[in-house]
């Protein structure tokens, strides 16, 4: 059964930091801008302890939210 499209996300592989995830998921973008974009889509990881550090179980969005009507 086909699922409707959902906002794409990944989880970190052991040892991966922001730059690694940016390289893996946003390979066609400028590395600095890719990290910037990734972080702007994942503010939830900065709103908790430890701030901005990626934990193994974290959901990391690799695109902005799906555009809604509002």
């Amino acid at each position: 059964m086909e699922l409707s499209r959902a906002r794409s996300f990944t989880t970190a592989r052991p040892g991966e930091e922001w730059a690694d995830i940016a390289r893996r998921t946003l390979a066609d973008q400028d590395p600095g801008q890719a990290v910037e974009a990734l972080q702007s889509w994942n503010l939830h990881l900065f709103l908790r302890q430890p701030r901005g550090r990626i934990l193994g179980c974290d959901v990391i969005f690799t695109e902005p939210p799906l555009t809604d009507a509002g």
């Binding site: 989880t11 970190a12 592989r13 052991p14 302890q49 430890p50 934990l55 193994g56 179980c57 974290d58």
Partner: peptide, 15 residues
């Protein structure tokens, strides 16, 4: 200490 509980350090392959 307001630090994550251990389960939060688990990666996908562990779960």
């Amino acid at each position: 200490r307001l630090q994550p509980v251990p389960s939060r350090y688990a990666h996908a392959e562990e779960i």
